[in-house]
């Protein structure tokens, strides 16, 4: 049955429910950062989390990966509850995370960075495919990871999680701090991986970029989801979004 659901065209966002988050709360020490986040993602969708700084977007991704101090509620991935799992076991269910600061390792060269995340399931991109999508990474294979430009580091940070066979990618502000032409490349790359059936949850502040790649947008405020806008309704919802995002 899942097989049939996955066959649905990804662009319509009508695949089976791959992720269900209900009433997710999270804390860093004493500070309560998420106050009951609920959202759904279907197989093959690209969904963004929009919101101002401090709204809880990054914390939502980190809570999904088990990288917060404490969390409560429910996160079901492919029907399996992951709220009680350690972060390495969460990764092994098929979720891959690309942090906002990119997390390129200075003491590893580009190839080592690329090959670092262990393959957790079949179906990831092969090295050939990755080098086709990201030709720069091949040219700079032996450079230390942090000697790449910001755009190349972002490409590397995304490329390395495409290899692993994870089906759900959590990307935290991949466009941040990059030149417009690089942001366009990242957008094209996200559309390309969507074509290959990956599901993406994208944290963004830049909704002009978000609307070029996403099927739906969740809006966060004060650690909660406050609205959801389908990409095709974006034009008619601009006033509302401007108010949320203060842009």
């Amino acid at each position: 049955m899942h097989e049939a659901a996955t066959m649905t065209h990804p662009a319509t966002g009508q695949g089976h429910l791959i992720l269900e988050i209900r009433d997710l709360e999270a804390w860093y020490g004493e500070s309560h950062v998420l106050h009951g986040v609920s959202l759904d993602i279907r197989q093959g969708e690209v969904v963004t989390l929009l919101g101002r700084n401090g709204a809880g977007k990054t914390s939502t991704l980190r809570a999904m990966m088990g990288l917060v101090g404490r969390r409560a509620g429910s996160i079901k991935f492919e029907g399996r509850e992951t709220i009680g799992l350690r972060s390495d076991l969460i990764a092994r269910t098929g979720i891959a995370y690309c942090p906002e600061e990119r997390g390129i390792f200075a003491s590893l060269d580009v190839t080592e960075n690329l090959m670092l995340p262990p393959v957790i399931a079949p179906g990831g991109l092969g090295l050939d495919e990755i080098y086709t999508l990201f030709p720069n990474l091949k040219e700079r294979a032996r450079s230390p990871g942090t000697k790449l430009s910001g755009g190349e580091q972002q490409m590397l940070a995304i490329a390395r999680i495409l290899r692993t066979g994870a089906r759900l990618l959590l990307l935290d502000e991949p466009s941040e701090g990059l030149a417009p032409v690089i942001v366009q490349q990242i957008g094209a790359m996200i559309r390309a991986i969507k074509q290959r059936g990956f599901t993406v949850l994208l944290v963004e502040q830049n909704f002009r970029f978000a609307q070029t790649v996403a099927d739906r947008h969740y809006v966060m405020e004060h650690g909660r989801i406050v609205d959801m806008v389908a990409n095709e309704d974006l034009a008619s919802s601009l006033d509302r979004l401007h108010e949320y995002l203060g842009v």
């Binding site: 990966m65 969460i90 990764a91 995340p117 957790i120």
Partner: peptide, 17 residues
């Protein structure tokens, strides 16, 4: 490589599985 990476950012290496 795992060792060097985990020395830099243990949390992220663990989040890779």
């Amino acid at each position: 490589a795992y060792l060097r990476a985990a020395t830099e950012r243990p949390e992220l290496v663990q989040a890779f599985g």
